[in-house]
């Protein structure tokens, strides 16, 4: 595999052949478990409020904005 050349970042881990699918599967499964846990966290109100504000600001300032 023509990799291992990212000199500015010094990615020094030796590149190897792709790992067996079953190992990829295990890692992928854990990654997804961890990730889905984060996704399932409730979204704080601040984001809904923020978008509401952005929209309002735009509606009020029609024409006069960047």
């Amino acid at each position: 595999m023509g990799t291992g050349s990212d000199p500015k970042r010094g990615e020094s881990v030796t590149t190897q052949a792709p790992m067996p699918t079953e190992l990829q599967g295990q890692i992928g499964q854990r990654l997804r478990e961890a990730y889905i846990e984060l996704i399932n966290e409730p979204v704080p109100d601040r984001f809904v409020v923020l978008l509401q504000k952005l929209k309002q600001r735009e509606e009020q300032g029609q024409g006069g904005q960047s």
Binding site: G25, Q26, G28, Q29
Partner: peptide
């Protein structure tokens, strides 16, 4: 898990 190819779920 034979079906879990390394693809995303979300």
């Amino acid at each position: 898990n034979p079906n879990s190819e390394f693809v995303g779920l979300t």
